[in-house]
Amino acid sequence: MSEEGEPKLVNPEFTKEVIKRGADTITLCFQCATCTGGCPSGRITAFRTRKLMRRVQLGFKEDVLPSDELWLCTTCMTCDERCPRGVKITDIIMTLRNMAVEEGHMAEAHKRTAGMLIKTGHAIPMGDKFRELRKTLKLDEVPPTVLCDPKLYEDVVKIMKATEFDKLIGERIDG
């Protein structure tokens, strides 16, 4: 971060990288702030969608990738729906979040969720209470998903290894 009174560190390579990853509609944004106006998260937090788009256009990488604000979007897509320029705002936010995680910016809670996917192939654990409830409802006690067959789970693990997701998250968890 630059010190007060000094110009911010502009990194044009950052903007180029965002575009290269498919978020090319960032260049279309003309800062009308329709996105901010409709954002339910922005109503109750300091998250300002328009500012985020501008920071990406200007290459303010250090303002964007480590920020908490990047993670206040619920992906409701109201902004995408209303944007008069067809900027794919939610897709851009997804790209930025992927870049943030690669740089090591990942919340503890999200590391745990990612760890659950790696461990089970699902986003949440099973739990005895729900096993019992499934029996009461006359459903398979264990749902017929990857949870019911270790071989199927192995397939999911192979995909996570091939995409190096296990490595990415492992490194985040370790440190």
Partner: peptide, 13 residues
């Protein structure tokens, strides 16, 4: 498996 979830896993990778 998980779809995988759009909010978390798509955000991660």
């Amino acid at each position: 498996s998980c779809c995988p979830a759009p909010g978390v896993f798509r955000s991660f990778d």
